[in-house]
């Protein structure tokens, strides 16, 4: 039996029928075509499927889609506006903070969420902020540096769009 679901995804109202046991990840990817959200481990450990729900990060692979009724969801697709990247995205590129790129959407959202909550985190706090995301290519140094550069307002005046 399907269930009616009303939610907001990337500022757009979504009214959709979902299976009762569908995961948010599958609804985003398969029904809404938002494939920027990735499935890694599928058990809430790697963070590749990170999205922002009502202002807080969550692993969409362990979120029941049905429970998202009335919720506000933001995915990686939300970030760039009019062809301009979000500062965090630009900083990841400039710092070579990605290799295969599979973990990147999750890291970018965790970084943004951290700075929303704590605009001036220490390196240690940045490490904690991204601790729910795992990268198996680059190592974490460049990723931490990328978040630090956004923290240090390196992108305030250049071309990157500001949220």
């Amino acid at each position: 039996m399907k269930l009616q679901l009303n939610m907001t995804v990337n500022d757009e109202a979504v009214n959709i029928e979902v299976e009762q046991d569908a995961r948010l990840l599958d609804v985003l990817r398969d029904d809404l075509g938002l494939t920027g959200t990735k499935e890694g481990c599928g058990v809430g450990e790697c963070g590749a499927c990170t999205v922002i729900i009502d202002g807080k990060t969550a692993n969409s692979c362990i979120v029941l889609a049905a429970s998202m009724d009335g919720c506000d969801i933001k995915t990686i697709e939300y970030l760039s506006k009019d062809g301009k990247l979000n500062p965090m995205q630009q900083s990841f590129i400039d710092n070579s903070a990605l290799q295969c790129g599979f973990c990147t959407p999750g890291f970018v959202l965790s970084g943004i969420s951290l700075l929303d909550r704590n605009p001036n985190p220490t390196t240690e706090e940045i490490k904690e902020g991204i601790s729910g995301n795992i990268c198996r290519c680059t190592g974490y140094e460049q990723i931490i540096k990328a978040v630090e550069d956004v923290r240090d307002k390196k992108y305030v005046k250049d071309g990157a769009c500001n949220e």
Binding site: G44, E45, G47, T50, I53, K56, T57, A58, N59, I62, V63, S110, S113, L114, E128, G129, S131, G132, N133
Partner: peptide, 9 residues
């Protein structure tokens, strides 16, 4: 507990 994502849920 877990990670930020897990603590949020």
């Amino acid at each position: 507990v877990g990670s930020p994502q897990i603590r949020n849920k």
